[in-house]
Design a protein around this nucleic acid. Structure first.
Length: 403
DNA sequence: CTTCCACCGGAAGTACCGGTAA
DNA sequence: TTACCGGTACTTCCGGTGGAAG
């Protein structure tokens, strides 16, 4: 990066921060949690969600709701926008409406999803130890005891169903029937359009009383969203149009993913600020693209469990002599490496699983190929440079003998 | 056409961990 | 203390399979 001494680098970083030359005056506007005052191109969806939830303000029950659409199409932001307003209205009218939000992929387990729901009704539960049924019972008791009307937004619901089954959803829909005073309304958000196939029909019919599809943004819409954010975020009303166009083109237009486009704009601005540039330019965007990718790989590599690291090293060993890198050969190398550093050797089945996980993380790319009589296997290919892997893995003393 | 390799990948089960309730 | 809980990491078992060789 730079061959300056650390203290000099730190000095210049601080000096730059002091000098008051900022490109951004509010980087919160470009953060992923930010909910704008206006959500362009999503007016219809906002109204729709609002109409579905409105009966609650009259003290009546409302339908469950399911929001579909690919990533970055505004599902989460619309849902949060509406429940925030709903909570405000309810608060100013002294109504017992509570809203809860949980992202299944962030919370990871059924238990923690329920914890999120419990917190919204001022119920604290231990972070482990209870059965799911017990937690649910406590929540149900609390809700009907206090007569709450609760809207529960369950984001990335498809992740929950795919990794754990639809059991929790079934219990949730069932328990909302058991509430005599009080009410629980579920708003599911799914990135996967086919996820309905995984659901039990009873859950499906209950959950999707109403459905709403979010189409991808067009390239032009993404550009306009970025411009809107930029006007708020950048100082002196200078909107770097060329750079924004590039952001929209690179991140958004392909799949209509607005979140990625906004992320890219934020990182680009940070790059420019760090450089001490006067203005955000296209070159900063290009650097940001690389930085995002590099950070992603770094994070993935350093958070890998030990066994996965050894498997990855085995793949890199194969790459040297031939491109014939299959599960069998990787397992052989892996076996050797394990013995060299004296750790437990896992089964081939597990190694095969680890290979799939590495693939999912985008650290390798593999495909199943059949060579007729010579069997059927995964051909694995790693795209990350060995040098980088060595650098990051060297933090782990166990691995040093085989780097 | 059938055979058969070298795996794939689902399912069920085990061991362990950090925790709670009674 | 004992019984039990859910989550994670892994094993064991096994039916399934694309396509070159025969």
């Amino acid at each position: 990066m730079s061959d300056k001494k650390p203290e000099e680098m730190l000095d210049s970083i601080f000096d730059r921060a002091l000098s008051g030359k900022h490109i951004l005056n509010d980087n919160h506007v470009l953060s992923s949690e930010y909910i704008p005052e206006k959500l362009p191109f999503r007016e219809k969806q906002i109204v729709s969600v609002g109409q579905t939830l409105a009966p609650l303000l009259k003290g009546m029950k409302c339908s469950n709701l399911l929001l579909y659409g690919k990533t970055g199409t505004g599902k989460t932001v619309v849902a949060r926008y509406v429940i925030d307003r709903l909570a405000q209205k309810a608060h100013s009218n002294n109504m017992k409406i509570r809203v809860a939000y949980s992202n299944a992929r962030v919370s990871r387990t059924s238990y923690r999803v329920l914890t999120d729901l419990a917190n919204s009704v001022d119920l604290s539960i231990p972070f482990t130890g209870l059965s799911i049924g017990e937690v649910l019972q406590r929540i149900v008791n609390k809700i009907s005891q206090d007569g709450y009307f609760v809207v529960f937004v369950l984001d990335e619901i498809d992740y929950l169903v795919k990794t754990h089954s639809d059991n929790l959803l079934y219990e949730l829909t069932r328990s909302s029937d058991r509430l005599s005073p009080g009410f629980l309304c579920l708003v599911g958000i799914s990135n996967d359009l086919q996820f309905k196939d995984y659901l039990d029909p009873r859950v499906l019919s209950s959950l999707s009383e109403e459905e709403l599809v979010f189409p991808p943004y067009t390239a032009e819409e993404i550009r306009s969203i970025l411009l809107q954010r930029a006007e708020m975020a950048f100082t002196g009303g200078i909107t770097p149009t060329a750079a924004i166009n590039l952001c929209a083109a690179l991140a958004g237009s392909e799949h209509g993913d607005a979140r990625r486009a906004v992320d890219l704009l934020r990182i680009s601005a940070e790059v420019a600020e760090r450089e001490g540039a006067e203005q955000l330019e296209e070159k900063h965007v290009r650097i940001a693209v690389q930085k995002i990718e590099r950070d992603r790989v770094n994070d993935a590599l350093s958070s890998l469990p030990l066994q996965a690291k050894v498997v990855l090293l085995s793949i890199l060993r194969c790459g040297d002599d031939d491109s014939s890198c299959s599960t069998g050969t990787v397992f052989e190398k892996y076996h050797n490496l394990c013995q060299k550093i004296g750790i437990e050797v896992l089964t081939q089945r597990r190694v095969s699983g680890l290979l799939s996980e590495l693939d999912l993380l985008g650290l390798t790319s593999s495909s199943v190929v059949s060579s007729g009589r010579y069997g059927r296997t995964k051909k694995i290919h790693s795209s990350i440079p060995i040098q980088l892997v060595r650098e990051i893995f060297s933090e782990d003393p166990v691995l040093t003998p085989i780097l």
